[in-house]
């Protein structure tokens, strides 16, 4: 990133115009796999925000001392250290959610958002903007996760955060939960719909 960008832009651009998931196409794997329910999606989003912001700061602090040949290993080790901490915290304080997320907490390490932002931003910027960039991109990721999980849980189970939202009388008149929404492929369709909406508003993103 050559030109000087204001801190505000760094923080807010990733929310829609430069969204990590639907524009930069980073971090898709976990975005799709954990969104069958709202609760794991929120926990996953918070974990990614924390890891991303901290990893960005740490690597931005040591960016001038890392030899370029082994920078990928260094980045991975820093990220892996942070993820281990998050994983142990979740095991201690949110055991059920962490069981639902299973390997996907570990897979934050290889979440492309992390590597992408570290390479593209933290390695060439000062700690404070890097921190904001981490928060911004983490939030952008979390927003997509929450939107997808909201629709999947609402239409698939009729609940939100485990609480029944669609009233009982709907079911008595023949309303059925759409079981298809819980299946993994529907996450892709929901994300595709978000992309469709977003690209129709932002003409310059269209191919």
């Amino acid at each position: 990133m050559a030109e000087k960008v204001s801190n505000k832009k760094v923080l807010f651009n990733p929310l829609s115009k430069d969204n990590p998931v639907i524009v930069q196409i980073l971090g898709i794997c976990s975005a799709l796999a954990v969104t069958a329910k709202l609760e794991p999606a929120i926990v996953m989003g918070l974990s990614v925000i924390a890891v991303l912001a901290l990893a960005n700061v740490i690597l931005s602090l040591i960016r001038n001392t890392i030899p370029t040949n082994i920078r990928i290993i260094v980045q991975l080790v820093v990220v892996a250290g942070l993820v281990v901490i998050v994983n142990q915290l979740l095991l201690a304080y949110a055991y059920n959610v962490s069981k639902q997320l299973s390997v996907f907490i570990g897979l934050i390490i290889t979440n492309c958002i992390l590597m992408g932002r570290l390479e593209a931003f933290a390695m060439s910027n000062k700690p404070w903007p890097s921190f904001l960039d981490g928060i911004g991109n983490g939030l952008g990721y979390t927003i997509i996760l929450i939107i997808v999980a909201f629709f999947r849980e609402l239409l698939g189970c009729g609940t939100l955060l485990g609480i029944q939202v669609i009233p009982e009388c709907f079911y008595q008149h023949g309303y059925q939960n759409n079981g298809l929404m819980i299946l993994p492929p529907m996450a892709l369709i929901v994300v595709a719909c978000i992309i469709w909406v977003q690209h129709s508003f932002n003409k310059d993103l269209q191919e």
Partner: peptide, 23 residues
């Protein structure tokens, strides 16, 4: 393909359909 879906959007949908087929 509809313009806003070109590129990445349609790829998501194709992947989803393939996923359903694999199920």
């Amino acid at each position: 393909v509809p313009k806003p879906l070109r590129g990445i959007g349609i790829t998501f949908i194709i992947t989803a359909l393939m996923g359903i087929a694999f199920m």
